[in-house]
């Protein structure tokens, strides 16, 4: 029985020590980001460079833009990297965020089976979506209130169509972009994705994926990424100074060049456009 007592005492000690050590760490920037920046590996590529230049450790939790904005509103992170301009503006206007800066963009594409049953190839976005709805071709949506999902809903509306909800041909996965693409591939359906994630998907499937890009290049498909610092006036605990340094760094010329050179299969995933 003495042994149990000792073991317990040691456990308590370990817990206390590790809890203390967690409190002692400094110069950490906590970011909430969209799944696409994480899934493509961009942040894994940028974070060490950021640390080298500033000594600040970047930690991020990846979530849909909806949850990322919520984490910012709840003061649980210091900075956000998101891609839903409309929601971002609301976020800033509500006083939750400051210093919103655009950093890069890629574009959305509509992908689908190579056989292209709804005959989308070469159509404009509006025509393509109209064709899908008319032919009731299977369409897989994120359905998770993410930036991509928000964009998709806007596109349905801009095409003058009713946003599908319970239709049989409309599947809402509630999952990340790559999972959603995989589901679309399994079900032989169409989906909308950011180009970066599609390239990553192409890369994962050894360069020969079952789904191909069918609609691209439309102005309305631009996917703009921005950073926003959590408003220190709203969140007293937010590391505003550190967040500011990150924003200055990522909009600076060095980071912008890094983003330009981030390629998969020889294709750039994001195009820097910080002003």
């Amino acid at each position: 029985m003495m042994k149990i007592g000792k073991t317990l005492a040691i456990c308590v000690l370990i817990i206390t020590l590790s809890a203390l050590s967690a409190l002692c760490e400094t110069d950490v920037l906590m970011m909430a980001t969209t799944t696409s920046t994480d899934n493509t590996g961009l942040l894994d590529y940028l974070a060490p460079e950021f640390k080298k230049d500033t000594g600040i450790e970047l930690r991020w939790t990846a979530a849909g833009t909806g949850k990322a904005l919520k984490l910012g509103e709840n003061c649980d992170v210091d900075v956000l990297t998101v891609h839903a301009p409309g929601a971002e503006k609301t976020f800033v206007e509500a006083g939750y965020g400051v210093d919103r800066r655009e950093i890069m963009y890629n574009d959305f594409v509509i992908i689908g089976p190579k056989s292209d049953p709804a005959d989308l190839k070469g159509k404009s976005v509006s025509d393509a979506l109209t064709a899908i709805q008319k032919k009731e071709a299977l369409f897989v949506s994120r359905g998770d209130n993410s930036g991509t999902n928000k964009k998709e809903i806007i596109l349905w509306k801009e095409a003058g169509l009713r946003v599908p909800e319970k239709e049989k041909w409309y599947i809402q996965t509630g999952q990340g972009m790559l999972s959603t693409i995989n589901i679309a591939a399994e079900r032989n359906g169409y989906t909308m994705t950011d180009r970066g994630t599609y390239i990553k998907y192409e890369f994962n499937s050894g360069g020969n994926p079952p789904l191909a890009i069918l609609v691209e290049g439309d102005d309305s498909l631009k996917n703009q990424y921005s950073v926003i610092a959590v408003n220190p006036g709203h969140c007293s605990g937010a590391e505003y100074e550190t967040a500011k340094r990150f924003i200055d760094w990522i909009t600076g010329s060095k980071a912008q060049d890094l983003i330009r050179n981030f390629k998969l299969l020889g294709k750039p995933l994001f195009i820097p456009n910080a002003e």
Partner: peptide, 14 residues
């Protein structure tokens, strides 16, 4: 959460 009752303990994401 930082807006929750124990936010100042800094235990979220640890």
């Amino acid at each position: 959460s930082n807006r929750g009752p124990f936010g100042e303990w800094g235990l979220l994401f640890t």
